[in-house]
Amino acid sequence: MRKRVATPYMIWMLIFIIVPLVMVVYFAFTSSSGGFTFDNIIKVKEYTGQFLQSFKIGAISTVICLILGYPMAAIISRSREHVQRTLVMLCMIPMWMNFLLRTYSWMTLLENNGIINNILEYFHLPRLQMINTEGAIILGMVYNFLPFMIMPIYSVMAKIDYRLIEAAQDLGCNSFAVVRRVILPLSVPGVISGITMVFVPSASTFIISKLLGGGDMMIGDIIEAQIQGGANNLNLGAAISLVLMVVVLITMAIMNIFGDTESEVSLI
C-alpha cells in the first residue's frame, strides 16, 4: 500500500533528479566524440581561482544573511501571532516576483548610468562604480537569499517552548543569558539549514553574478559559458558541475558534523 502511494514520487525523482545526474556524470567522463576520458575532470583544475572566488562570495553572502536574518527571525518569532503572520508575509512578498526581474531591477539601480548614480549627480556628488563589482554580487545574493535564512531559523525559534525561557529566568538567567544558554543552542538546527539554503545557491549562482558582476567571476558563469555561451563545451561544463556538486556536498557534510558536535559539545 505504502509502496503504491510512493510510486508517483519515485517516478518524479527518477525523471527529474536521477536521469539528469546520470547525464551530467556521463558527459563529464566522455569526450566530444563520445569516448571515455578523464580529460574534462583534469581540466577543471584550471578554474581553481573561480572556485575559490565563488566560495568566498558565497560565504560572505551567507554570513551577512545570518547576521541580518537571525535577529529578524528572533523578532518575528517573539511577536504577537497576527504580527508574526504579517512579518512572515513581508519576507515572502519579494519572492513572488520573478527572480530575474528582481535582479534586473537592481541592475537599473546600480548601473553607471543608473538611478543611484543619477541621484548622486543631481546632488553634485561623485559617481560610484557599483555594477560589476564583488559588492554588487553580494548585495544581489543577500537580497535574493535572505528569506531562505530567515524562514528556517524562524520556524525553529517559533517552536521553542516558552516555558523553557521561563525556566531559564527562574533559574537565574537575565535576558542576555536566556539568549545565550537557551535560545541560541536550540536554534542551531535552523541556523544550519539556513546556511545550507543560502550557501549552496549563492556559491553556484550565475544569473546574479552575470547581471550584477559582469560575468566571469564565479564558477556558475563558467559553467553557463560552457553549456550555452560562447565556449560551447558541454563535456567540460558537466565536469565542472560535477566537481562543484561534490565540493558543495563535502562542505555541507562537514557543516552538519560540525553542527552536531556543536550541540553535543555544549552538552559536555
Binding site: 527562574d170 536550540l186 552538552l267
Partner: peptide, 24 residues
C-alpha cells in the same frame, strides 16, 4: 524580575532543557 527572586519553580510539564543532558 524572576531571575532575581530567591525562589525556584517546578513547572507542570517539567520544562527541562532538551539540548542539555541530565547533568547539565
Amino acid at each position: 524580575p524572576p531571575y532575581k527572586r530567591p525562589v525556584n519553580t517546578i513547572f507542570q510539564r517539567y520544562a527541562l532543557f532538551p539540548h542539555l543532558n541530565v547533568y547539565e
